[in-house]
Design a protein around this nucleic acid. Structure first.
Lengths: 212, 212, 212, 212
DNA sequence: CATGAATGAGCGTTCATTCAT
DNA sequence: GATGAATGAACGCTCATTCAT
């Protein structure tokens, strides 16, 4: 990459991404409907009109945000699973923690929160999200469980269903953080919560587990 | 008295509940902000003005809905736990299934969905909901786990945390139904899902569980 | 009048007057538009529907109020002027103080305030009020001035115009009380104000002004 | 630049004043509550939404109107009094006529009418108006009377009270014009009315009354 | 007579979207 | 490319009026 590109030029190319970032932040914080385009524009350092240079509508902006933020995350996860060497248990832990880090570092995942809030109003977006994020995410975790079953680490099971049990508490925990952060006493780090959750899932509740 | 039901025939006593029902249905489907009072009124079979005879504002309507629908559900659960005789495992299953039935038969629980969507905008409601529903629900499930630990059925654990792991997938599953119902192939009944989930939680994933 | 009339019966007959009283109180305090029929009804001790038994509309209620409250006051004044024996100066003082007492004791006059506020919207009412109250009130005071001119107490002048100068400050003073009562320090009684005003005016009117 | 005036051609700078002008016209004619923002907008040649670009609310619009129209008028009057050379009588006449001209040429003063109508509902505005307009106006006229007393033109008196007697008829006369213009035969110009009023008052004020 | 539940038109306010500059 | 003034449809809420009881 040559450095003849002036800061101005780089800025021009960066605009859409800056707007998407701003939109994601606000969509996640306030929900889709409650986010005003004026605020998105201000946070992105432009004016409202500029947003319409790059996106046809508020809805289209949301659509783009999903595509550009979540899909790459899943692709990364898939490639890690494909190339991972080690036990399924380790992989499961690694994958989960990596996901959680992403969730914490930026808003990415909480698009799920936005989808839960406003998904109904936008069936096309919901369809896309369900296909490209929800199902794909489940398959990703299921594939790890499959490895574990194949290796004898895990009991045989419906791994797609089990994946949902793995994902749900973590997802809900993060959505929770957005909605009730002020009220949770929270002497517990997200890492603690995830560790506890993983151990519970891996071990089960029973004092004397049966083989079934 | 003939059944020529006019708008005058209905009783003042029935109206608030009818309006709350309509509101819950729409709040759950579309979220708080996206629900228009006109629609609530139409679904309740009245006009917009009538809603304001019984509720001071849209927000107050939502507040009333929470109070009248969710709190009684929790009280019922609490009394069942208090009076239950049998193993903690059975109690856990019974309680969960009873909850799920309520969820299915009506929209009640999915107030949680509404809180996740719009809770940020209405801190007072969020605070009330967190206190009276979220925490209380957790404590309810934790108390069952405590019984099991005391009886030796379950391993010692942080039962409040474990309660969250029990609740989350079921909750998320039902919220999911609202957001992505159209896209889930769903050859699986809610009952199936809950059974699978409970078994998984009770047994854990591991092929050879450790005592830890 | 027989006394077989029960309290109930008297009450029935009194209803319209009670409603008018309530309406006047509130119209004067808040203006016509800002007064809700619900409030009028409550103050009159009836329900909103009852108001419509006696008056066709809010506007009609206002109309009736004017007729029943102000016109009698003017008739009283006219008869006092007709029968008064004594100097025009004394008559002027007596008439003015009597008017002010009425103003203070109840809201009567401040219908003028309501007319000033809302008169434009209701040309018919304004026409009636102007004819039956404004002009007639001016003529009443002018007739007193005429007496004084005839008797040589006052200088010759356009008495109709002079009447306006007499009336205006007193009227405005009372309207003022409604609008700015909270802000006027008011170490002065209404009586003081009127006395001061009359003395000033009489000094201007007198044929042979005194040094006082 | 052609004169194809489009909605885009107008300048941001001119808009607020145009809207204030329209608002004053309608507030004065109809009162604050009875004036619809749609009408204000239409009279200003814009749409309702545009009003909200410049003013936060209807109330704020009224507040701005007071600040921008009446306060400068008073400041002008105060500076004229300060710099005037001549008799207090002349000053009083000049000041009054100048005020009346302002009243006639535009709606300015009749903000008083609006305050009388709707002041009760908006205590903050009433407080501001009373402080900055009513009291200040009284003080302005009183200061002229003080000059006259000092110079021996006028008898000693409570000049603040006397100021109210000077102001009231003129104010009421103009408020009257708005409410009953249609019904007053009015073969008399405002100038005539003011002259008559001033002469009458001056006769009452003078230290050495003339026969005129 | 009296009630009060119900109506529905109307207003203040918001905000996604447009477009002349 | 970028701006921001302007739009207008939409929504929450109010209240005079109606009418079955």
């Amino acid at each position: 990459m040559t450095d003849t590109s002036t800061r101005w030029q780089r800025r021009k190319d960066a605009r859409p991404q800056e707007i998407i970032d701003a939109a994601l932040t606000l969509f996640t914080q306030r929900g889709f409907a409650a986010t005003k385009l004026d605020e998105v524009a201000k946070l992105a350092g432009v004016t409202k009109g500029t947003v319409y240079l790059y996106f046809d509508s508020k809805e289209e902006l949301f659509f783009s945000a999903i595509r550009e933020m979540v899909v790459p995350m899943l692709e990364l996860g898939e490639s890690r699973v494909a190339s991972f060497e080690g036990s399924a248990t380790e992989l499961l832990k690694a994958l989960t923690h990596s996901w959680v880090e992403k969730l914490l570092e930026r808003k990415g995942v909480c698009l799920t929160k936005v989808m839960l809030s406003d998904g109904n109003q936008y069936p096309e977006i919901a369809a896309f999200y369900h296909q490209e994020v929800v199902l794909r995410g489940r398959r990703l975790f299921a594939s790890v469980l499959d490895k574990g079953v194949a290796s004898g680490e895990f009991r045989p099971m419906d791994t797609l269903l089990a994946a949902r049990n793995l994902i749900a508490p973590i997802l809900l925990y993060h959505i929770w953080l957005h909605s009730f952060a002020a009220f949770e006493s929270s002497d517990m780090t997200p890492r603690d919560y995830v560790d506890f959750h993983l151990n519970l899932q891996l071990n089960g509740l029973r004092a004397h587990p049966e083989r079934n």
